[in-house]
Design a protein around this nucleic acid. Structure first.
Lengths: 163, 163
DNA sequence: TTATTCGTTCAATCGCAATTGAACGAAATG
DNA sequence: CATTTCGTTCAATTGCGATTGAACGAATAA
């Protein structure tokens, strides 16, 4: 990474990158957001690539991702033909949107999946692939999972409102 | 994966694997837990490796991870020298422990990091590396981040109790 | 004792996704 | 017009971490 950044911003960028990586997102995307978050002026793709020492291709894909998540917006800088970007500072809203776009769908899918599994289990029992005892055992375990899902299902809306 | 598993268990194992992968953990670890979660009898390392078509090395490291997380326990099976494993079924407790072992530490670390960043920013201002305006801007952004952390800090204990 | 059977460790391999460089089309410039 | 400047796309590369096979030590068995 370029050393033309003040230490504070450098460390922040690194931390943001790590956080994104932790969430299973490209590190560079987090770095870009971190850079823009602490950038008083909007930055162009070239600025971003230069300051982070990444390719313009990465900068391009990263910013487009961030724009699609509404974490960053394009701004017009008079007298400059290039696109410029600045971070949207409302982290709470960003977190909520992230929850809606990432966790929510996967969680709902897993709920549906559980029903499918219960059906498959039922089928296995009918087909005699598993003993009655095994069926009973698996049934209880799957029910336990369902209980947890219900709990989470009640918690999440509360958490989203609270944040 | 071996086809000697009933469909229901096969799908469950796959889903558990994906979930682990989603959380940044080895897929095989999730598969092992999934397998044991729906296994009426304790399984040996060889059973696990065989049923999941993974190496015994993976089975070994995976089970040890799971044991360390108290997601799985070793049980003694009379007349068999080998270690056997069975899943602990309390998913709620498992989730809480996961929160304590994974999220909690990283979150606390990020809180400390924020203080460090604020100091570094202060230093940059004193050194004249950044203008007064830039300092002001960054200061506000970092404060915004601090606000979010405080929110999360209040929410998490509530969520942990609720689950 | 020697020979097996287990479980673990570790260097090497593999797979996946992030990253890149080059090529391209579109838009602005002269 | 031709030329330059942008941003995007995509095939190729890279890097990282999960997975494996082989080697090892410890415990059991013969």
């Amino acid at each position: 990474m370029s050393d033309s950044l003040p230490n504070s911003r450098r460390e922040f960028v690194e931390t943001a990158g790590r956080l994104c990586q932790l969430l299973g997102l490209p590190r560079s995307t987090g770095q870009i957001y971190g850079l823009l978050y602490l950038s008083p002026q909007p930055l162009s793709l070239d600025d971003i690539a230069e300051l982070l020492s990444i390719s313009k291709a990465s900068a391009s894909t990263g910013t487009r991702q961030l724009v699609s998540w509404q974490a960053v917006k394009e701004v017009w800088v008079p007298g400059d033909r290039r696109d410029h970007f600045e971070a949207l500072g409302d982290l709470r809203e960003l977190l909520r949107a992230g929850y809606r776009n990432f966790f929510q769908p996967k969680f709902e899918k897993s709920q549906r999946k559980l029903d499918v599994l219960l059906s498959a289990l039922e089928q296995d029992r009918k087909d005699g692939v598993i003993t009655r005892d095994d069926y009973q055992f698996c049934r209880e375990r799957l029910d336990g999972l369902g209980k947890l899902q219900d709990r989470v299902d009640k918690l999440l809306p509360l958490a989203e409102k609270f944040l």
